[in-house]
Design a protein around this nucleic acid. Structure first.
Lengths: 185, 185
DNA sequence: GCCTGAAAGCTAATGTCATTAGCTCAAAGA
DNA sequence: TCTTTGAGCTAATGACATTAGCTTTCAGGC
């Protein structure tokens, strides 16, 4: 086996640096190849095509988020766990806005596993609320929607007014936690 | 003035049909030109470039949403107004998922006006809660985040489980409305 | 009815990408 | 040392965006 200077993982790592430093729109095979010091077609030895690279990158990012929020939730329960989860999620996106924006949302086969892990962490964080399975599904969806919407808009710079975004996020957190104490009407 | 078969508005209209029928990724000047029955470079007589077309399209979509939720809120107040606003917003996105996904979120000069109008409608819908200006800003941001996150994920097909999405959205609506009755801790 | 100039559309050309085909050559293992 | 495998390369193709410069149409004045 010859020159193994590159690997699938290295390529994904370089792709992450591209989106971190130049934004999601800059993610091209050319850009990654340039960073790898390699001709563009050489990348096809490691990833099937650009679409697969995007998928691998998305799975990686989902994995990082799961790990972060999983850590944050450890040893906590109830509102405290929820608060920690939401804070950790937002904090990750603030650190890597391009990375988060580059993440694919539509259901791809390669993302199923990473997506499930992320859901698992969220379900676990809600466990102490004592919800039924079905209530938990609705609760996780609401949590995910609210956090995803907020961090996406924040990362895009879509909140123009001068009011504190920390305060807004506090309010959002309270809306979610309060809503979880009475998930049915 | 010669052959005025095309216009800025026509071009935007064709672009809307492209994203509606083929998704946001299919929005190319080639695709629009093909629908217009015109060579690609001819479009440059009407829009500066692809970036500007995206901006015009985004402004148009924002305008449509403002109009829809504005209508929905007319003659209502309080929780009822909020509920109508959220329902109308989601309903718009379900009708035009590609259009919504094609909408730019980052603050562009050309989007300022449309963005302000959308914000105005949301502030108006919250008026009867009697919030302070600052509380309203936080409330609108939370509302926008939650709705945007939900409809984006729903349009992307990101909610895989079989539980009813209508029920989830009801819960999300209740979380927001309940949170608005006591926006500060 | 004819002239003219501005605007709409066209062709040709360039540059960036993704992707495929087929070659080369390094190095691992016999 | 020889073979084989696989990483990386060059060349080529095709889709796009964008620019330059030409052609043609037609509105309005004569």
């Amino acid at each position: 086996m010859p020159r193994a200077s590159l690997s699938r993982e290295t390529v994904v790592g370089l792709a992450l640096r591209v989106v971190d430093e130049e934004g999601p729109a800059a993610l091209t095979l050319s850009a990654v190849a340039a960073r790898a010091g390699v001709a563009t077609p050489s990348l096809y030895k490691h990833v099937r095509n650009l679409a697969e690279l995007r998928e691998l990158l998305s799975a990686h990012v989902m994995g990082e988020i799961s790990a972060r929020i999983g850590d944050a939730v450890l040893g906590r329960s109830g509102d405290e766990a929820l608060h920690a989860l939401m804070t950790a999620w937002r904090s990750y996106v603030r650190t890597h806005p391009g990375r988060y924006a580059a993440m694919i949302q539509s259901p791809q086969p390669g993302l199923a596993e990473a997506g499930e892990r992320l859901l698992d962490v969220m379900f676990a964080a809600l466990r102490s609320y004592g919800l039924t399975d079905s209530e938990s599904v609705h609760a996780v969806r609401c949590l995910r929607s609210a956090v995803h919407g907020f961090v996406l808009l924040e990362a895009a710079g879509a909140f123009g007014l001068p009011e504190s975004l920390d305060d807004t996020y506090e309010l959002l957190t309270r809306m979610i936690t309060a809503g979880l104490h009475a998930p049915r009407p």
